[in-house]
């Protein structure tokens, strides 16, 4: 495989490792959509960097083929920021779960959104902690009974889209892993967006979550992708959808058409890996400054 090949297929982003996700896990569909979106946008595995968090979702780095890092819990976004800054020519996609992104890594989420680095962030939101076998997550419903919440968490779930919007997001998407076409399309738009493309993916856990199921999302999600009248650039309309307590939406919910990515604002370009064999030219000027 080489970077010269121009017709990359989504299967090229697939590794030969066999996923150990439970049969029926939403993460299969989520990953397939990510691979399709990467291929559709003309990316190549050798020029792509995937950063994965910890949790069931974090296994994605193993199942996909690209440059990848599976790091410590909650810190996937900072790693992605470092990668993209060091080489803006790379396609950087960060992926994690609701625990990784909205609990232990919530602080990084806020700041990654505000920085608006040109990369995408796909969160597999199953509203449960699956890998640790069924505890409530930051997006679990208030009355969701789990091993650590016999009476339900009794605290408001995080609204990730609102959190993103309040942090200054320039792209907010939401999808459902089993609506393969819409999911891949929204992730593709996130990749193409000039800035931080955030997609919250409902990715059901068939083993530990019997409330937020495939049936629930299939019945309750309103698809904005089918609504020609909906304009993602309309901030007020996006606020209405994101703060709607009655319904949930999928599609590109908000996109700032005037988004300018961090790299452009800061003049970051080129590969930082390329350095000379000795001190860089002009380094002696630094010594002279101390006269």
């Amino acid at each position: 495989m080489s970077s010269e090949s121009s017709d990359v297929r989504f299967i090229d982003f697939k590794s030969d490792a066999q996923p150990t996700w439970c049969p029926g896990c939403g993460d299969f569909g989520t990953m397939n959509g990510m691979m399709k979106a990467l291929a559709n946008t003309g990316n190549h595995p050798d020029d792509t960097f995937i950063v994965a968090g910890i949790g069931c979702s974090g296994k994605i780095g193993t199942y996909m083929h690209s440059y990848a890092l599976h790091g410590v819990h909650g810190r996937a976004l900072p790693v992605g920021i470092g990668v993209k800054t060091a080489n803006p020519e790379l396609e950087v996609m960060v992926s994690g779960g609701d625990g990784d992104g909205y609990s232990i890594g919530a602080g990084h989420f806020v700041h990654a959104v505000r920085r608006n680095i040109d990369m995408s962030y796909v969160v597999m939101d199953n509203r449960i902690y699956g890998l640790t076998k069924g505890q409530y997550s930051p997006t679990s419903r208030e009355d969701f009974e789990t091993a650590t919440s016999p009476e339900g968490p009794q605290q408001s779930p995080v609204n990730p889209l609102a959190l993103a919007l309040a942090s200054g997001a320039t792209f907010i998407g939401q999808t459902f892993s089993s609506d393969a076409q819409r999911h891949a399309q929204v992730v593709q738009r996130a990749i193409e967006h000039d800035g931080f493309g955030f997609v919250n993916v409902y990715s059901p856990c068939v083993t530990f979550n019997d409330v937020d199921t495939y049936d629930y999302f299939r019945e309750s999600l309103v698809d904005l992708g089918d609504d020609d009248a909906y304009d993602p650039a309309d901030y007020e309309a996006a606020v209405d959808r994101i703060m709607d307590t009655e319904k949930e939406y999928q599609g590109v919910i908000y996109q700032d058409p005037d988004s300018v990515p961090y790299e452009e604002k800061h003049g970051v370009s080129g590969r930082m890996a390329n350095i000379p064999d000795g001190a860089p030219e002009g380094a002696t000027d630094l010594v002279r400054e101390f006269y």
Partner: peptide, 9 residues
């Protein structure tokens, strides 16, 4: 972690 990302790049 940012530094780690840059270093891996």
């Amino acid at each position: 972690n940012m530094a780690l990302g840059a270093a891996r790049t």
